[in-house]
C-alpha cells in the first residue's frame, strides 16, 4: 500500500461560499504538489479548478499558497513540504476559516494572496496584467531584419539576465503593499521596468518613458523595502533589488525626486 498524504484544500465556487475540503492522495516517488492536485481532480472531483501548463517551473501558471507559503505547485515536492525550511517573515495570509487544520499532518492548499478568487485556486490576475501593460514593457525601435544586429557585450547582457527570467507567476504579489494598495504596480511589474531600463540597447528617451510610468506614487515610492518578493520568487529574479536599483540609480537621473 502506498503511503497516503492528507490535504486540506480551499474550495470556492466564486459565489462567496468558502469551504475547506479534505483529500487523501497516495504518495509516489517524486510526486509534486501539482501531481497531487491532478490526482484530486482525476479521482475525486473533476470540477476542482487550478491553473497549470508546463509542469517544469517555466510557464508561471501554477502559483498557489502551500502551507501558508506562496510557491509554484509544480516545483514543490509533496514529501518535502513538512520537512523543508520555510521562507521567513512572510505576512500572514487569510483566505478562510480552517481552524481545524492539522498542521503537522495535512498540507494546506490555498490560492495566491491579494488577488480575487474566481474559482477554487484560480485567481483573477486582471490587475496583474493591467499593471504589466501600464509600465510599457517593450522595445519601441523599428523592426529590422537585416545585418548587422545591435551589438551588446556579454557583461551588458548579464546585467539584465536575472530580470529577463521573470515568469510573471504573480507569487511576488504576496507583498503586503499589494494587500493594502490595489493600485500598487507590483514587484514583478517594477522588475520588468528595470529589465528594460537596464538594457544597454534601449534609448535614453525610452528609458525615460518607462521611468515616468514607475516613478509615480503607486510605483517605486510605494515599495516599503520589505523584500518579501525576493524571498518568494521561484526564479531568483529579486524584484525588490530591482526596485532598489530603479530608486537609487535611475530615479534621480530623470525626475530629481526622492522615492
Amino acid at each position: 500500500m502506498a503511503k497516503m498524504q492528507k490535504f486540506l484544500v480551499y474550495r470556492n465556487k466564486g459565489e462567496g461560499d468558502i469551504r475547506y475540503e479534505r483529500f487523501e492522495v497516495p504518495l509516489r516517488k517524486g510526486m509534486t504538489i501539482l501531481d497531487a492536485l491532478f490526482y484530486i481532480q482525476d479521482h475525486f472531483d473533476p470540477t476542482f479548478a487550478f491553473r497549470y501548463a508546463c509542469r517544469g517551473a517555466i510557464c508561471g501558471s501554477c502559483g498557489i499558497t502551500i502551507d501558508k507559503v506562496p510557491d509554484l505547485a509544480c516545483r514543490s515536492q509533496v514529501a518535502e513540504i513538512k520537512k523543508k525550511k520555510k521562507a521567513e517573515n512572510l505576512p500572514v495570509f487569510h483566505f478562510g476559516d480552517h481552524a481545524n487544520w492539522d498542521e503537522e499532518n495535512e498540507i494546506l492548499i490555498e490560492p495566491l494572496p491579494n488577488m480575487p478568487v474566481l474559482k477554487d485556486l484560480v485567481v483573477d490576475m486582471d490587475n496583474f496584467w493591467k499593471f504589466y501593460k501600464k509600465i510599457q514593457p517593450y522595445f519601441t525601435r523599428e523592426y529590422k531584419d537585416t545585418a548587422p544586429e545591435s551589438v551588446q557585450s556579454s557583461k551588458e547582457m548579464y546585467t539584465i539576465e536575472g530580470l529577463v527570467y521573470c515568469i510573471l507567476c504573480g507569487l511576488c504579489w504576496a507583498c503586503p503593499v499589494n494587500a493594502k494598495n490595489s493600485h500598487y504596480l507590483g514587484p514583478a511589474q517594477l522588475a520588468k521596468a528595470d529589465r528594460f531600463i537596464r538594457d544597454s540597447r534601449i534609448s535614453e528617451e525610452r528609458q525615460k518613458q518607462i521611468l515616468e510610468q514607475v516613478l509615480n506614487d503607486d510605483g517605486v515610492p510605494a515599495c516599503e523595502k520589505l523584500f518579501i518578493c525576493n524571498r518568494v520568487c521561484p526564479k531568483n529574479v529579486m524584484p525588490g533589488t530591482a526596485i532598489n536599483d530603479l530608486r537609487k540609480n535611475f530615479a534621480k537621473k530623470y525626475v530629481k525626486r526622492k522615492c
Binding site: Y143, K144, D145, T146, S150, S154, M157, I160, F196, R201
Partner: peptide, 13 residues
C-alpha cells in the same frame, strides 16, 4: 535579427 531588434535578450559572443 528581427527578434533581436524587437528586444530579444540573446546571449552574446
Amino acid at each position: 535579427l528581427e527578434l533581436e531588434s524587437m528586444g530579444a535578450p540573446f546571449s552574446r559572443l
